[in-house]
Design a protein around this nucleic acid. Structure first.
Lengths: 216, 216
DNA sequence: AATTTCACCGATAGTACTATCGGTGAAAAA
DNA sequence: TTTTTCACCGATAGTACTATCGGTGAAATT
């Protein structure tokens, strides 16, 4: 029943991980307002004052949460790139573009919800992290689109690309929220809709009607 | 310099409106966590204890804020319907579908930001209001799409319609955020992108290729 | 075996906020 | 004019949380 006897540092590390896990759960269920040292410590099974053995203060915990969330996010993006590279370049790869982020969100819904919330909350110490993450994701998508042949010559071109990337991100998030709330149970239906929307911006890619002969 | 001498009830009403205005500003700038009776009262120029002359408790203030936000939202939707009805049914009407909500958001950015934030915050007393509002808007868009000829026969058809409506809403919100953050200064460029995305789902509308002669 | 380290504990000082209470003066009612 | 009403005030009790402190025992070190 009782496992291996743990060394002191192992036990401390375990407690720290329990605290972080508890903090994520509370943040997800009750929001920023519910995240107190009292609740986190109790959920992790230690005294409130012992919280300070592991974190300098409340802010320090938030920083650790941001770090961990960032690490998972980066791992997810690496994984997505890897899988996209493996998929054959037919219709299925295009669907994968949407399916992979959705599956990543489903794997860590609490991280997704926390990020979504922090993104627009000026009182959240995680806001900077969320804003940077979404900007990074936007840039990542915009680069992919540029690689597909979207024009990036003018400032206006680049802005439009960023808007499209922003839109794809927003669409994906909205569908993910609907899926997590149970409104869209079937992920393949979700991917169908995202593919439908994508036909719109892909239309911008089609060969220019004017073969660059006019004066301007 | 000093205006008309106010009657007692007029003065009280003015103070109440000052409190609500201050509450919206604080909510927008500092988030839910910053909204305390101390700050609201000070911003409105009265003593903290006098807050309770106007509101039963903190919760009561939030309720009042939700009521007022709901009223403005409904007014905006009525206005949008009216204007859409007036616009000639050419390409411009289609652009108006996107332009009108964007302009409404620009008119009350603080309400928009507060709603966006509350939508995913379980600790926010405004969450219910935000969730209901977005569901109402989704239904409103879905009805418009059905009127345009999208199929609604099967459960799956209706779910797809809701997903598209959800997507349009998410796109509009994301573009509005970018505009308010200064990334997309030109609203016409924003409308261009929304129109591009819309070509995608409108493609689903096109006449069925099979004229219903086959066995199935 | 003797000593040191340290993760955890209970107690508590300090801080910020909510909500109530009795008092006050000017507006409103009599 | 006299009386009543009430929006606002300062003071304060009560609550919830943050962060610190000295103490304890078992693990780790010597």
């Amino acid at each position: 029943m009782t496992g291996t006897p743990l060394s002191r540092s192992e036990a401390k590390d375990l407690t720290r991980r329990r605290l972080i896990r508890a903090a994520f759960a509370i943040l997800d269920e009750e929001g920023e307002a519910g995240l107190t040292t009292v609740k986190v410590a109790r959920a992790a099974g230690i005294a409130q004052s012992s919280f300070y053995v592991h974190f300098k203060d409340r802010q320090d915990l938030l920083r650790a949460l941001g770090d961990q969330a960032g690490e998972r996010l980066r791992a997810t993006m690496r994984e997505a790139r890897r899988r996209a590279h493996e998929t054959p370049d037919d219709g299925e790869r295009h669907r994968d573009t949407f399916r992979i982020p959705l599956e990543a969100i489903r794997r860590h819904p609490e991280l997704f919800r926390i990020g979504l919330r922090a993104r627009h909350d000026p009182s959240s110490p995680l806001q900077d992290f969320a804003v940077e993450s979404s900007a990074a994701y936007r840039a990542h998508l915009a680069a992919d689109l540029a690689a597909m042949g979207f024009p990036t010559g003018t400032e206006r071109d680049r802005r439009r690309l960023e808007m499209i990337a922003d839109g794809i991100n927003a669409l994906t998030n909205a569908m993910a929220v609907g899926h997590l709330e149970g409104r869209y149970p079937d992920l393949e239906e979700v991917v169908d809709v995202l593919v439908a929307f994508s036909k719109g911006y892909l239309w911008l890619l089609r060969p220019p009607r004017r073969p660059l002969s006019e004066t301007e």
